[in-house]
Design a protein around this nucleic acid. Structure first.
Lengths: 200, 200, 200, 200
DNA sequence: TTTTAAACGAGACGGTACGTCCTGTCTTGCT
DNA sequence: AGCAAGACAGGACGTACCGTCTCGTTTAAAA
């Protein structure tokens, strides 16, 4: 048994078992009962943990959900590398769509994005802990293309990202229409059309 | 004095004064204290209205906020008509950005969009009462251009809208970066580039 | 159905049904589980009442217990009148002993006397709401005897009461020995011995 | 430095320093914040001791308070010997009154007497560890008088004690009036009046 | 001198109850 | 009939202590 999981109350700090149980309970409750069904008391009861233990390590249920999401979010994205910007973008946008619409972490992400609209502090945390790292992942295909000499040095990458992932989030958060591969592929096609000449 | 405002406890139907007071109280509370600060009890107290009166006419605080937003949203948008798709789109996207980032109704809209992430019923209402009518407004410039013969009959208007307004919502809801006219203008420029040939 | 019991939430004030249920629940819990077993949550659960309803009308579980005791305490004592100080005192002291050792209200009284040792505010309330009225009841036999001319005007009645009821409380609260009639009768005999001459 | 105070963690028995610190902390907290302010956590924090150390040596905060009181109670009482029952009783009753009303140990004693009303186990401990030894001390003057031939062999000493100290506890615990020497002296006078003939 | 085991401080743990806030329902008397 | 008022049952909040536990350190008797 791992040292971190062996202890349930000790001077070495927190119980890993409790931490994991809380994150899983929060995740389960969100999926099963929705955001309003995620309560500290409910998490504590389901995780078999005392409320005080939760309050000792997290400031709010939002903080728990961030913890529950972040690792998964990072794991979900595998940087594509097909040696071609178009292929890489198509691949990446599909990953983004899949993450948001078809994973538990994506469900948590949507809930947090929702809560960010209600609370500036959540918005700031969402920005720094999810949006910014995600933006780095979004940039990867472009930077790679640029390194290959396939993309102009003057191309505004951030604008391109807004154009490409913006519509995905829009459909997920606003219209609720679903984001099929045809949609993301079409986005890439439209984006690449005017700059196709600059590609080798 | 208007008939509707004359009665406060009567047999002549609901009190317009109470209705207005509730909507304003909800709006004020949202702006002053954020979404969590909007409670039925708080609205009732600020509006000088009994809780029961609120429950009689609205199903939840969400319903109140929808009421508070919808009229303003419709009023905000004035269909542009410069006889040119580019100009109309630039104008319209600026209106969208202004609505979302700089109006009270936009603040309510963001809050409701947030809540839609937590509650499918809210999402459905948001879709039908805000997103769908708004989509109609978004289509206007394209339909006008098509009627003018400036836009191909085969152009996928809904995809175009996703491409154009999606990035605006994305910046508002996810990155929180703000949406200056330069940004929306650039979106239009990029959109029009490949189809410029099809324009007269 | 009585007006007072008909309403459960209205502008006429509190629900008599809730009031009674709370007092009975508190009483039952004290008898069944002891003072530590009397909790606001426990009372609320057993009475089928919301905690907030309790906090609306009582400041603490102590206040509830006072309410539960006071009416019973007044009812318990029937002023004796045998036309004779000795008989009256014997009767009264037996009533005191019975109240303290053999009634539910007496159990509550002992608990409150206990809590008065822990909290000056409780002590003050105990003094004004129980001890003072009880002292009036204790004085009755002496005042009656004095009116009959059977007791000297100079007799120190309060000292006499301290002498007569003090030992009863002492056995109840400190030694826990029980207070049989033989004991209270002996107290009266010893008290009357030196002043027997003054009696007609 | 004493052996017992030299050790703080060892295999040779408990730390005297910790024991004393705990008792003093409990005493201080009782006096400063009242019975409810005496918590194991509070004692541990103030004594600079781990909670576990407290639980190792005491079963509850009640046990700590008993420890804190008992030595002082025994020390407080110096058996009077004036060769006269009246003088001895007057002296002793004043000591009882002083102990209960004017010493820290008396404050603890009152608190424990209070808690005894809530918990039969405390009552039993109070009876065996305080009331019974105290009763022995109360008997001393009578036994001495009897040995001197000044008190009848048939006199009911326990009844006499109930009559004499009962009113003192009554005033301390119930009426809160204070117990001046005039009061205890009057008790003795009234007690001795009818049996004065049997003396000397 | 080294080992070793009891007591120590610290503090995390699963819990219970606290007193507060808000929910949605209700019942009244007034207009 | 609609209204302001406000009491009601219910449930989650975040806090304070409870009593239990595990840890790493201190210590002095035993080896």
């Amino acid at each position: 048994m791992d040292i971190a999981t062996r202890h349930h109350g000790n001077r070495h700090g927190r119980s890993e078992a409790a931490r994991v149980a809380v994150l899983e309970a929060a995740d389960d409750l969100l999926v099963e009962r929705g955001f309003a069904g995620v309560t500290i008391e409910g998490i504590a009861a389901r995780a078999g943990v005392a409320k005080q233990t939760i309050y000792r390590w997290w400031t709010s249920k939002i903080a728990i959900l961030f913890d529950a999401m972040l690792a998964d979010a990072a794991e979900h994205f595998s940087p594509p590398d097909h040696g071609d910007l178009g292929s890489d973008l198509r691949d990446h946008l599909r990953q983004v769509a899949t993450f948001l619409t078809a994973t538990d972490a994506g469900a948590v992400c949507r809930a947090l994005a929702g809560q960010a609209q209600h609370d500036p502090a959540v918005a700031a945390q969402f920005q720094s802990e999810f949006a910014a790292p995600q933006r780095e992942r979004d940039r990867e295909p472009f930077l790679r293309a640029r390194r290959r000499g396939q993309l102009s040095q003057t191309e505004d990458i951030d604008l391109a990202i807004d154009q490409l992932v913006g519509p995905i989030y829009y459909r997920v958060l606003i219209t609720g229409e679903g984001v099929p591969p045809e949609f993301t592929d079409a986005l890439v096609d439209r984006y690449l059309a005017p700059i196709r000449d600059t590609l080798s």
